[in-house]
Design a protein around this nucleic acid. Structure first.
Length: 920
RNA sequence: AGGCGCGUAGCUCAGUGGUAGAGCACCACCUUGACAUGGUGGGGGUCGUAGGUUCGAAACCUAUCGCGCCUACCA
């Protein structure tokens, strides 16, 4: 074994071997266990969130594989319609060309090239992370098989009447020139104005005007009514009359509708059914005409008065206001903040537009999906997310699935010249189904499907649906979906609906929602904020210049460059050190707790890197101590029995917490055991035996066997979380012990029953630790160097203390740095000694010439104060008869025992302080 | 407007009714034979605030403050 732990050297070796050997493929006859990966977008590279997610899934996958389950982690990627198209368009822009210039076919070729590159990058990153996915089953949402599933679902839903085409108001992105779904719109509060416009009432003798308040004055060009509340006394008499719509020469009715809030603004609302969702509803109710005044780029179109045609919406706004002002029709302007809807991808304000789009009727699909969660057939972890799911599902709107893009699944609909629409799997089927002669010309719909349409089918399309494949039969429903809360609506809900509809059941049993990862300031990580960290840079390390280059390259908003550079230099003055994959995975898994989001903390990674190093060195030590291990019978010492007993408990805790998706607790448990029990105590305890030339051979072999057994189990327990280092160390052990184990991956996961519990040994070692710690405290607080061997005198030992001192004298001397342990005769006294207490026994270290008497007095007085404090609290508790009457008896007994302890301790300390004073 | 989450040591976070915890940071001592990426000891918290329930509350309830988020919005 090499002397130093070097993650990069280790981590480059094992993955290729695992993959080549086919260890990632499902094997054996155990109960199936399956996770489908949330397919990353082929927009570029994996980010921290992916790395976190992959860590969780890989840990779960490896754990269940080692449990003997037939385990499949299904990999793949998503074509990510809009996102990928945008990335490639930006690329073309830098090349001085464009999507339109290339034409559809050539453009798609370019996107496929990009997909190839991005897909390879993602696969490479996943391999670096140690992801044990079955690469032989890698899928892409636009693979032929998956595309067939998309067609099948579309056609079946259409034939059932659950997909329809309709002209409705839809969120329109005027930059991307496509419809987007409600979920792709992000609203944020922005400061704006509320303009009060005067609309003259037609034929009113008193020259009455209605004043409407609006945030969108330019849309008045498309107004088709003014609405008031039916019960509003101020306007009741005007309902049914008309107003003169300024700038247009049109007259529009005054209508009454409950939608109007009489308290807000003036109580009069202009109604523009073609450009506002609420107005649209009002328009439908009152059968108003719908006049769209904007084109696909949100410029004023030819249905508006000539003066405004061709103007951008914001230019038009200015012009309309100027013209109204000129005519004295602008009453007033107020400051107003309102929620502005922007396209998730383009960032521009989206425009409600009347267009022909395809929709999925959601309600019939949602009902069984709600039921599935209510009945617990799908379980959310943490369960609080089920509430979000229900809230959304219960008021779900129809899903607009058509996108005016080129990259994606083309909608399987064909049109003839008479405006008829036909839906089928292909053109030939259309002709067969509808008996269309070959001379009838058909054109396929130009649009593609929302990328989430194919994602919704992922759990069964990747397993071969619509064919009845063995994989589908074996692994559907999958075991758990691991994802973050931000795509519960986009994806999780839709998968449940589609799974129930087409795959004959829920797509997964558990939905494990993990926390979103943020930077150390609590900011969401994003390219545009310039605070991203490539997970690979945490593995390999990165210097400041490279990091800066990555963050600043291709920035969308160049004005942020300075602040990004400043922040980066401040946070990472030396760049990022190399932590290695294992340490990074431990860090991720330890952050996965119950909260909504987590901050990535570099110092945690540092800590886990040190843990890796600790494990490396411990293994090196154990392996160096095994001479003669197979030479004969072995006998277990108390220490051996103790560590085995402790391991028993640890294994149980690990199983429980894997089941509960509490990887943080799994890590905490194993870290604590490995470092603070195995290394700190057990290894040190074995040294007394292994280094003693005259130690009994069988006892020595007991220690050696236990060292190997416990370490091996520990490596197995840790493997799902830190696969590389544990594999390396396990192979070292296997080599030295002559085991024919090609990999730790396929070793059975430890069961608690393999290690016996032993309460006596645990008590015994607890006593021993108490003894050693007592002496160490004296040493520590009096600054006695370790090199100074001490003599300790024991006063008032119980018979069992005496026995234990004899049994463990070697350990006590070694661990506490003692040269002698002397038991005092009853009544015998040591004047002026530093004291430690253990039960009724006192451990006295003579002070003479060693330490400062007054400092020792101070130390004891401090302990005494603390003890009296504890004693007071306990006494108060017990003097409360309500406590004695109501608390469970074991709690009362425990409190009584504590009091006895404290009393004994206090009196011992008292006496000892007195003896010290005597001396001085 | 409704809903959700969070508030525990300097920092990042565990801890769902019974003696306040971890990692990192800090202080002191120690180059002891696996590991100085280490060892030993130590300091540091009235668990956001105020009430309540309870023998007992960091935990349960109510209110309140602060932070973050989600959903739907009044034009």
């Amino acid at each position: 074994m090499k002397k130093d732990y070097d993650p990069s050297e280790i981590e480059t070796r094992h993955y290729a071997r695992w993959e080549a050997a086919g260890y990632f493929a499902p094997a054996g006859n155990g109960a199936p266990y399956c996770i489908v990966i949330p397919p990353p977008n082929v927009t570029g590279t994996l980010h921290m969130g992916h790395a976190l997610q992959d860590t969780i899934m890989d840990a779960l996958t490896r754990y269940h594989r080692m449990l003997g389950r037939r385990t499949l982690w299904q990999p793949g990627t998503d074509h990510a319609g809009i996102a990928t198209q945008m990335v490639v368009e930006r690329l073309l822009e830098r090349e001085g060309t464009s999507r339109v210039a290339l034409g559809r076919e050539k453009f798609l070729e370019r996107v496929w090239q990009w997909k190839e590159r991005s897909g390879n990058t993602i696969a490479r990153q996943m391999r670096r992370l140690g992801a044990s996915v079955d690469w032989s089953r890698d899928r892409f949402t636009m693979d032929p098989g998956l595309s067939r599933a998309v067609l099948e679902v579309f056609v079946r839903l259409h034939d059932e009447g659950l997909i329809y085409r309709g002209k409705r108001l839809v969120n329109w992105d005027p930059v991307l020139h496509t419809a987007i779904s409600d979920l792709e719109v992000v609203s944020s509060e922005e400061r704006g104005k509320l303009w009060h416009l005067r609309y003259p009432v037609v034929g009113d003798p008193g020259n009455a005007v209605l004043i409407v308040a609006t945030t969108r004055p330019e849309t008045m060009l498309g107004d088709t009514a003014v609405a008031v509340h039916p019960a509003d006394e101020r306007y009741r008499h005007l309902v049914g009359k008309q107003v003169e719509l300024p700038l247009t020469g049109r007259r529009i009715p005054i209508i009454a509708d409950e939608y109007v809030d009489p308290e807000f603004g003036t109580g009069c609302v202009k109604i523009t059914p073609a450009h506002d969702f609420n107005d649209y509803e009002v328009g439908l109710r009152h059968k108003l005409p719908m006049i769209g005044v904007l084109d696909a780029s949100a410029r004023i179109n030819d249905d508006a008065p000539p003066a405004y045609r061709g103007l951008d919406r914001f230019v038009a706004r200015k012009r309309v206001l100027e013209d109204l002002t000129a005519q004295g029709l602008l009453e007033k302007i107020e400051d107003h903040t309102s929620m502005l809807p922007r396209g998730e991808r383009s960032g521009v304000v989206v425009e409600p537009m009347l267009t022909d789009q395809w929709y999925v009727r959601m309600q019939p699909l949602a009902e069984p999906a709600i039921e599935a969660v209510e009945q617990g057939r799908v379980r959310f972890i943490p369960e609080t997310y089920a509430r979000d799911y229900f809230d959304w599902m219960r008021k779900i709107q129809d899903w607009c699935i058509s996108r005016q893009l080129w990259w994606g699944h083309r909608i399987p609909a064909w049109y003839d010249d008479n405006g008829n629409v036909y839906v089928a799997r292909d053109e030939a089927e259309v002709r067969r189904k509808h008996n269309l002669a070959t001379n009838i010309v058909l054109r396929q719909d130009e649009d593609v499907l929302d990328t989430w349409f194919s994602s919704a089918l992922w759990p069964f399309s990747t397993l071969g649906w619509p064919d009845k494949t063995p994989e589908l039969a074996t692994f559907y429903p999958t075991s758990v979906l691991v994802t973050s809360w931000d795509i519960i609506f986009f994806w999780v809900a839709r998968m449940i609906m589609m799974g129930l509809k087409f795959a004959d059941g829920v797509p997964f049993r558990d939905v494990y929602i993990y926390s979103l990862i943020r930077d150390s300031e609590g900011q969401k990580m994003s390219k545009s904020k310039g605070n991203i960290i490539d997970p690979i840079d945490l593995i390999d390390g990165v210097d400041l210049d490279t990091l800066l280059k990555k963050r600043l390259d291709g920035l969308m908003q160049p004005n942020l460059q300075k602040s990004i550079e400043r922040n980066t230099r401040k946070e990472f003055p030396q760049g990022i050190p190399a932590f290695g994959t294992d340490a990074l995975r431990l860090t991720f898994a330890s952050l996965v707790t119950t909260g909504r989001d987590v901050r990535f903390d570099m110092s945690r990674a540092e800590g886990y890197h040190r843990f890796c190093n600790k494990l490396w060195n411990a293994t090196a030590y154990v392996l160096s101590q095994l001479d003669g291990i197979d030479g004969g019978p072995a006998r277990l010492s108390t220490a051996d029995t103790w560590i085995r007993s402790r391991l028993h408990g640890v294994i149980g805790t690990v199983h429980e917490n894997f089941a509960a998706y509490r990887l943080d607790v799994v890590i905490q448990t194993l870290y604590d055991f490995a470092w603070h029990e195995f290394c700190d105590w057990y290894l040190e305890l074995t040294k007394a035996v292994l280094n003693a030339p005259d130690a009994e051979a069988a006892l020595k072999r007991g220690a050696q066997t236990t060292l190997v057994d416990v370490l091996s189990a520990l490596l197995k327990l840790l493997h799902p979380l830190m696969p590389f280092l544990t594999e390396e160390l396990w192979l070292e052990i296997a080599k030295q012990r002559g085991l024919s184990s090609p990999t730790l991956m396929l070793e059975p996961f430890p069961e608690a029953t393999a290690f016996a519990t032993d309460a006596t040994a645990e008590e015994e070692i607890a006593w021993l630790k108490g003894f050693v710690v007592g002496i160490r405290q004296i040493r520590g607080e009096t600054n006695l160097p370790r090199s100074k061997a001490l003599t300790v005198r024991i006063a008032d030992p119980s018979p069992s203390d005496r026995a234990r001192i004899t049994t463990h004298s070697l350990h006590l001397q070694k661990l506490a740095g003692l040269e002698r342990i002397e038991v005092l005769e009853p009544g015998e006294n040591v004047r002026g000694a530093a004291t430690a207490l253990l039960g009724g026994m006192r451990m006295l270290v003579p002070l003479a010439g060693l330490i400062d008497v007054s400092a020792e007095g101070e130390r004891l007085r401090k302990q005494l104060a603390k003890t009296r404090d504890d004693l007071d609290k306990a006494r108060r508790k017990l003097s409360n008869h309500n406590f004695v009457a109501n608390a469970p008896p074991d709690i009362v007994a425990q409190e009584n025992a504590r009091i006895a302890d404290f009393e004994q301790r206090a009196s011992q300390l008292d006496a000892q302080i007195a003896r010290l004073t005597e001396l001085s």
